[in-house]
């Protein structure tokens, strides 16, 4: 069948583009929610988290050919999110003002969650970043200690200690909070 060489190449390029497009869409559907959540817990701001997610997937698209193994996609995306989040601080290093981190948490956007969940969410966001980040990786992505250590470039024991302390803090607060309220009422 006489098909011109150019036409054949054109078809091949087109199908290559289509394949890349499909790969990208699969990536978006599989990870966009968790990437957004992760970005939220890094930035603690809904709209910044959305910006980070957009920037992350845009960069992922542009260098999608560099991703050889689909199994590595999660770690790859998380690396991009962390870099994008860090870039945010480089960009506006001058206008950063010190806030009490826990106070910034925007609770109004979770109006549809239960009160209990809002409380837990507030506590999670209130942890310092060094405890918050490994815990979120475990809670959202189901990462093991080794995987967190590899992702954050930390020693595994350090990661285990931070996870332990993070949960310990949360447990103390979760248990204490009603007691404190009780005292106030009594």
């Amino acid at each position: 069948m006489p098909i011109s060489r150019n036409k054949l190449q054109g078809v091949r390029v087109l199908s290559g583009m289509k394949q890349k497009q499909q790969r990208y869409e699969a990536l978006v559907h599989a990870f966009h929610a968790d990437i957004y959540r992760y970005a939220y817990y890094l930035a603690k701001d809904k709209s910044i988290a959305e910006d980070i997610a957009q920037e992350t997937f845009l960069r992922a698209w542009r260098s999608l050919d560099a991703l050889k193994d689909e199994k590595a996609a999660k770690a790859w995306l998380i690396t991009i999110v962390r870099r994008e989040n860090a870039r945010r601080f480089e960009k506006k290093q001058l206008d950063i003002v010190e806030y009490d981190e826990a106070a910034i948490v925007d609770e109004t956007c979770f109006a549809d969650s239960t009160v209990q969940q809002n409380e837990v969410h507030r506590l999670l966001a209130g942890l310092t970043l060094e405890y918050r980040e490994p815990l979120i990786l475990q809670l959202i992505f189901g990462y093991s200690g080794e995987e967190i250590a590899a992702q954050l470039n930390l020693n595994k024991n350090t990661v285990m200690t931070r996870l332990f302390r993070a949960r310990n803090q949360l447990k103390d607060t979760l248990v204490k909070t009603p007691e404190v309220r009780g005292h106030q009422n009594g």
Binding site: A33, Y41, K46, F110, Q116, H121, L124, L139
Partner: peptide, 16 residues
């Protein structure tokens, strides 16, 4: 499990 549930904050509609 509570933490996991709480961590799953709602994602903006149409983000994908």
């Amino acid at each position: 499990n509570e933490l996991k549930q709480a961590a799953k904050i709602p994602v903006p509609e149409g983000l994908a």
